[in-house]
């Protein structure tokens, strides 16, 4: 740990950087200003909100864990194995980050819907149907969230000094042991950061979810969808739910992200 040397702040950087910060701060102030603080407890306690909160926490955490289980091996393949079409695959994996989520949701529907390419045979064989189910929400969340983990972990793998892995291998460790005992611990901070980013993206996911999984309280209505529906009927409820989302996100991002950012 090195302390940053105190520097004189160039005025241009201070002004533009300050304006940049305001872009993020002002909307939050607006939200706080519009919050019906005296009714907040009653609004948050309503069953629409508690159902959505429970569902959001469940689906975002499961999505983050699925991203971890499949995203880390995928990142390793992208970083370490020179297979044909690797650049194309990397672009496809990162596509959900730039694609409008609604487009992602429609694509999921064409693939995994009841009439979908994979969905129809999947249903006839296993009876499993993703649309309009909580699993549908989890799939939509994972689709948009996993790229954040893959990118972060792949970047870390590429920047790793290969001599440590080579040393372990030369001492007789199998490739999987090297991955588990040397590679994973060394990319720990990036892995944690990627996991948090993926979780946060899953928590805020809206477009792909409503397109693919629909909207039903207790089954597919997550916090962002509850906000969207409430904005048309009860602004106070919408603001209260938004505030929950902001508070959860800020707590997690400050507590976890800060730690991992510093240590890398």
């Amino acid at each position: 740990m090195t302390r940053p040397v105190p520097t004189r702040v160039p005025p241009a950087l201070a002004v533009f950087g300050g304006i940049g910060a305001l872009v993020f701060v002002i909307p939050l102030v607006g939200l706080a200003w519009r919050t019906p603080w005296s009714r907040l407890g009653e609004l948050i306690g309503s069953d629409v909100v508690t159902d959505a909160l429970r569902l959001s926490l469940l689906t975002s955490v499961v999505s983050a864990l699925l991203s971890l289980a499949f995203g880390v091996p995928l990142a390793w393949l992208l970083a370490r194995v020179d297979f044909p079409g690797r650049r194309l695959l990397r672009a496809i994996v990162t596509l959900p980050m730039v694609l409008p989520p609604v487009v992602g949701g429609a694509a999921l529907l064409f693939a995994f819907g009841r009439r979908g390419l994979v969905g129809e045979p999947l249903e006839s064989v296993t009876g499993l149907l993703l649309p309009f189910s909580t699993w549908g929400v989890i799939v939509a969340n994972t689709f948009v969230a996993m790229p954040f983990l893959v990118i972060t972990v792949e970047g870390a793998l590429r920047n790793l000094d290969p001599r440590y892995e080579a040393a372990a291998a030369s001492l007789g460790a199998s490739p999987f042991t090297v991955f588990r005992r040397v590679t994973l611990p060394m990319i720990g901070p990036s892995l944690g950061a990627g996991l948090v980013l993926a979780w946060a993206r899953a928590l805020g996911e809206f477009g792909a979810t409503i397109t693919f999984a629909g909207n039903l309280q207790g089954r597919t209505q997550t916090l962002p969808i509850a906000v969207f529906v409430a904005l048309e009927s009860d602004r106070d409820v919408a603001v209260a739910i938004s505030l929950i989302l902001v508070v959860i996100s800020v707590i997690v991002l400050v507590a976890l992200r800060d730690r991992w950012w510093r240590s890398s």
Binding site: R114, R115, F132, G214, N215, L216, T220, V229, E232
Partner: peptide, 20 residues
């Protein structure tokens, strides 16, 4: 026994047309 409450009628219609 609802499976979804769509935010507007055209979205609902589209899902019926698609057979979802």
């Amino acid at each position: 026994q609802l499976d979804t409450e769509e935010p507007d009628v055209r979205r609902l219609l589209a899902k019926i047309i698609d057979g979802e």
